[in-house]
């Protein structure tokens, strides 16, 4: 579904991604792991073109989703991001009510009818496993929620525009273990409907949630295969050193 071919990315002179090629199948969970600065978040952000906002970025190679090259000049980035949602490291709800946070996306994409918005908000919150906790408080500020709830709200906000792909950039690194567990369970459920790519620093997390794992080092994709293989029987010595905790 997502096909990355010979992707190079530069921040000015700095070569941040070196000739990365990989194929991410539909409705699977892929984890990107590697030490800080290895390029895993950068690669994630190429998939919804969030790197476009950094002026010095130069990209070579192709990324296609369902055969459509997302780096062609005529691509509408807003439409792309509607299809490829993203959840960030820090929960970043808007200073609005819970309802308005979730309804934000549908509204800017043209949904105006209250009844439709109500349905979308409920469905998205259910999909994000948050509905039961907030259904009575939809008009309350999102800032009243706990960190874990805020992160699930951000997932609901991303789901509300009906994406196919969900990118998650270390979505639990700011959360406590119990909230982390909830998000991980949620990610497993979301796999039924969405293609998920998750960047994580936490190798146990990659092991628990993902189907396949890619290991990055200094902008190179060192190894990419089934998660079990990466963790139990890696081909490359550097992968083995990293997953066994010898560095990183």
């Amino acid at each position: 579904m997502i096909d990355i071919q010979s992707l190079d990315l530069f921040y000015g002179e700095f070569h941040a991604l070196k000739n990365v090629s990989m194929f991410l199948p539909e409705k699977s969970i892929t984890a990107f792991i590697g030490p800080s600065g290895c390029g895993k978040s950068t690669l994630l952000r190429t998939l919804n073109r969030m790197n476009d906002m950094i002026k010095t970025v130069k990209i070579k190679g192709t990324v296609t989703i369902h055969g459509n090259n997302i780096y062609e000049p005529e691509v509408n980035v807003e439409l792309l991001r509607k299809r490829v949602g993203m959840v960030f490291q820090q929960p970043n709800p808007f200073p609005k009510s819970i309802y308005d946070n979730v309804a934000y996306g549908p509204r800017i994409h043209g949904t105006k009818k209250k009844s439709e918005l109500d349905d979308i908000v409920e469905k998205s919150l259910r999909d994000a496993a948050l509905w039961d906790e907030v259904k009575g408080d939809l008009k309350k500020s999102a800032y009243g929620l706990s960190g874990g709830q805020q992160q699930r709200l951000c997932i609901a906000r991303a789901l509300a525009v009906n994406p196919e792909v969900l990118l998650m950039d270390e979505p639990t690194s700011a959360l406590d273990p119990i909230s982390t567990l909830k998000i991980e369970e949620l990610i497993q459920q979301l796999k039924e409907k969405y293609t998920i790519v998750i960047v994580t620093h936490n190798m146990q997390q990659a092991g628990r949630v993902s189907d396949q794992t890619a290991f990055f080092l200094n902008g190179e994709m060192v190894e990419f295969s089934e998660t079990d293989t990466i963790f139990s029987n890696p081909v490359d010595q550097r992968t083995e050193d990293y997953v066994t905790g010898r560095f990183g």
Binding site: N48, M50, M53, E78, L79, L80, R81, K82, G85, M86, V87, F88, Q90, N92, P93, F94, P95, K96, Y104, G105, I108, H109, C154, R157, A158, A160, V161
Partner: peptide, 23 residues
């Protein structure tokens, strides 16, 4: 981060400014 959250659901720059940053 708030702007990024808005961009990530497909907001244009103007929508980010008017519907997220100004409020």
């Amino acid at each position: 981060a708030l702007r990024n959250g808005a961009y990530a659901v497909g907001s244009t720059k103007l929508e980010v400014a008017i519907k997220v940053v100004v409020p």
